[in-house]
Every structure is written in structure tokens, then in C-alpha cells.
């Protein structure tokens, strides 16, 4: 599942974008079996965001729902196809990753608890990687 559907922190704010973002999260929560949370989001945030909109620029909530659900489904399919291929090609590097977790399995670099081989002090971000690696279940 593409982690990009969870958050798009660099996207410019717009009311329509906000509604779309909430709907995307609802779809994602539904896709991972968290229907009660999705329902809560729909009742609270979506209702609130929609109320403040003067209009959706021609887009209906239903249409956005349909579009976002399609994107989430596509992303899930891609993830399903890619996961075994990635596991095969990356092999041991993935042993510390959180396979099966609902949290997005993103780490593009393998966190390590070991100091760098060149003897230079590790960066703080490297330390955080080490911490996050420890937090993941084995």
C-alpha cells in the first residue's frame, strides 16, 4: 500500500484538498479494516470540513469517495504485487521492517543500531533510525 496516501505534507492547502485528504484517510482506514475509525472520521472531520466549503468546485463528495477508493485499491494491489518482489530482492535488509503492520513500511534505508564503519560520529537522524528499528516488532 502506498504510504503516500497517508499524508501529503507538502501539498498546498485548499478546502477541496482538505476534503479529499480526509476522504483518502477514510478509504485507507476502511481498506485496512478500521471501519469504526473511518466512520468516526466521516462523522466528525469530514462533516465539519464539508460544512465550511462554499462548494466543492464541481466535485461531489461521492465522486471523490469513488476516486479515492479506487486509488487506495490500486495502491493496495501494487503493494501486494511488489511486497514479495521487494522481499526477495532486499532479503535480509527487510528483516527489521514491520511486515504486516498497518503502519506504512517505508524505510528507504535500513536503520541500524551500529555505528558507521568509517568511525565518524553517527548523525542524530541515524540514531533515530536505530531507535525506530528497535521499536518495530521482530
Amino acid at each position: 500500500m502506498s504510504p503516500e496516501i497517508l499524508s501529503s505534507p507538502t501539498v498546498e492547502y485548499s478546502p477541496v484538498g482538505e476534503v479529499r485528504r480526509i476522504i483518502r484517510r477514510i478509504c485507507l482506514l476502511r481498506a485496512v479494516g478500521r471501519a469504526p475509525e473511518a466512520a468516526r472520521l466521516e462523522l466528525n472531520e469530514l462533516a465539519s470540513a464539508s460544512v465550511h466549503l462554499p462548494g466543492l468546485g464541481g466535485e461531489s463528495v461521492e465522486a471523490i469517495f469513488s476516486e479515492e477508493m479506487s486509488r487506495v485499491t490500486d495502491a493496495s494491489l501494487v503493494a501486494e504485487l511488489m511486497a514479495p518482489l521487494l522481499a526477495q530482492s532486499l532479503g535480509p535488509l527487510l528483516r527489521t521492517s514491520n511486515v504486516g503492520s498497518t503502519a506504512p513500511p517505508i524505510a528507504t534505508r535500513t536503520p541500524s543500531a551500529a555505528p558507521p564503519a568509517n568511525g565518524s560520529p553517527p548523525s542524530i537522524a541515524d540514531f533515530i533510525d536505530g531507535m525506530l528499528a528497535q521499536e518495530r516488532p521482530a
Binding site: 504510504p3 507538502t10 485528504r21 475509525e37 465539519s48
Partner: peptide, 28 residues
Amino acid sequence: KPIITAAHIPTNAAATSAPVRSPNSTTP
């Protein structure tokens, strides 16, 4: 309110980049 913690948002965007929003707010 229940929470979900989602680590590892996959972007290389800097923290100073374009306006970002609270996950539970419509205010930019």
C-alpha cells in the same frame, strides 16, 4: 479519541516546505 500512529511518512520534503496542516484541523 483513538489514535493511529503512522511513522515514516515517505517524503523527502523539508520541514520548512509549503504549508502543512494538522491532521485533525481544516485550518491551514
